[in-house]
Nucleic acid binder design. Structure first.
Length: 470
RNA sequence: UCCCCGGUAGCUCAGCUGGCAGAGCGGGUGACUGUUAAUCACUAGGUCGGCGGUUCAAUCCCGUCCCGGGGAGCCA
């Protein structure tokens, strides 16, 4: 059975037509209407690409009967022909024979106007912003970038794995977690059971505390030590009260994990993945990237091209500290071995000193997580961060500690009980192998790809402290 | 969570030393034109973020709360 939309031609296809077409059916939203005596111009966008297609509605046609309702924001279905445009600015245009208005948009109350809006305003109408040029382009790029991530891993022998979103592990350790519970507000279960103060979650759904995952790393390690090379690409949740343009409570993270791999392999993977995704997006989303280059960040294309063509800089933490100490710049926070690099230090390295992405590796163990492999110097761990201009930390990863005794000692050093990590320790107990992996923030990658400076504007419906609309 | 800046028409903003609320864009009406964020004329549109205080009088000064931006911390 045919639907009324069976023959609909996406605008991107219509614009790329090789020749005129006697009949064509397009659907989309009216971006603007310009009326002339005897006919009107409509700019139609259907999201398939950045460009609009121009439709001509002549006074004599049946289509003209509905022209008053075809206001900015209205959705329309147009049957007509595709003809060469006599006007400047476009090759093809649609001469409308029939037009129906599928959904009207009251001109006085429709929030999107034929003008530029601020990102802050568009964020308050996140349900409508996909209909703007900028956010249409952004979400097309987001889709392409996600695809390119899967593509890169597939081409390089990685298996995609799905790590759990609900976790009972109290040792993910990457930050504050969101609790998930089916208990009533008074602490009783749906069946009316009341847990004891000692065991609050005894009668909760899982019989123990449950949280949303803050990382798929531990699970990915398990899969890697069986499948060899794996990656996860899923949502991640942090209940941190972070109020910055680079943090969200819900974000998407790419976490590869490789068995039989060292920090060096890890750094090569991080660089290869980043470069490959950027390259593909530049190739496949040229018009959308152009928009950002024109209106958001005029250095964008130049910087992305450099990123694709030049190797990332690499510097050990120790060298980085020396660079920072000797650069002659005065920082708010002085640098010395053992202190964490502050945002101002990271920005100096990526934006000024190297002026391109830089991988900092071999951090002091005192400022990094217990699962990172201890180096022979006994003071640093095989960790690495990829710092990129304007974004800061895009990737954080490490070679994992694969020696049972060392791992156990590190856990105790931090005052924790190794027993809680029993299944994680088992990986080191049975057929342990050197392995490595990292986490890449997908939204931060998109910020880098588009020049957009606020993470809230690269994810359709951002979740940040105090913000759960839509 | 801390520091700084801001909140005035649908949007972007101006508003002097406390004294009757402004512009551009958008909307409406009309004109005109193969137009490209069309153009021209006319026109409507306001709880000056909320609450409290000072004052004869508050958009303006003070307190407080809410929201937004920038910076910091936490990190991806």
């Amino acid at each position: 059975m045919n639907s009324p939309f069976t023959n609909r031609i996406p605008v991107c296809q219509a614009l790329a037509a090789q020749g005129p077409m006697d009949t064509i059916h397009i659907c989309g939203w009216v971006r603007t209407r310009r009326d002339s005596k005897g006919f009107s111009f409509l700019e139609i966008n259907d999201g398939s690409c950045l460009a609009n297609i121009q439709a001509i509605v002549d006074e004599g046609t049946p289509a003209y009967a509905n022209i008053e309702k075809a206001t900015t924001g209205a959705s329309v279905s147009i049957h007509g022909s595709l003809t060469a445009s006599p006007g400047k600015g476009q090759k093809w245009e649609v001469r409308a024979a029939e037009m129906s208005v599928l959904g009207e948009a009251d001109a006085e109350t429709f929030p999107l106007q034929k003008k530029r809006h601020s990102d802050e305003f568009l964020r308050t109408i996140a349900h409508l912003r996909p209909r703007t040029n900028k956010y249409g382009a952004l979400f097309r790029i987001r889709s392409e970038a996600a695809f390119a991530v899967h593509e890169y891993f597939r081409e390089n022998g990685f298996f995609g794995v799905h790590s759990p979103i609900l976790t009972g592990s109290d040792c993910e350790g990457a930050g504050e977690m969101f609790r998930v519970t089916t208990l009533n507000q008074d602490g009783t279960s749906k069946e009316g059971h009341k847990s004891s103060p000692q065991e609050l979650f005894q009668h909760d759904f899982f019989g123990k505390e449950c949280n949303l995952t803050v990382s798929g790393q531990l699970e990915a390690e398990n899969l890697a030590l069986g499948l060899g090379k794996v990656y996860t690409f899923g949502p991640t949740f942090r209940a941190e009260n972070s109020n910055t343009p680079r943090h969200a409570a819900e974000f998407w993270m790419i976490e590869p994990e490789m068995a039989f791999a060292t920090l060096e392999d890890n750094m090569q993977l991080a660089e290869g993945l980043t470069r490959s995704v950027v390259k593909r997006v530049l190739e496949r989303c040229a018009p959308d990237i152009d928009l950002f280059n024109k209106f958001v960040d005029t250095d964008l294309e130049k910087r992305l091209t450099t990123l694709v063509n030049e190797p990332f800089a690499r510097v050990s933490y120790t060298e980085a500290v020396k660079i920072l100490q000797q650069c002659g710049k005065t920082f708010e926070f002085p640098v010395s071995f053992g202190t964490d690099l502050q945002t101002e230090h990271e920005r100096f390295l990526a934006e000024e000193h190297f002026a391109k992405p830089v991988i900092v590796y071999d951090y002091p163990k005192t400022i990094k997580a217990f699962y990172m492999r201890l180096n022979d110097d006994n003071t640093t761990v095989a960790a690495m961060d990829v710092l990129v201009p304007r974004i800061g930390e895009l990737i954080g990863g490490s070679q994992r500690e694969d020696r049972l005794d060392v791992l156990e000692a590190r856990i105790r050093e931090l005052g924790q009980d190794p027993a809680h990590y029993w299944w994680y320790m088992d990986l080191r107990r049975f057929g342990s192998v050197p392995h490595a992996g990292f986490g890449m923030g997908f939204e931060r990658l998109l910020m880098m790809l588009t020049g957009v400076t606020n993470i809230r504007d690269v994810i359709p419906f951002p979740r940040t402290p105090g913000n759960l609309e839509f």
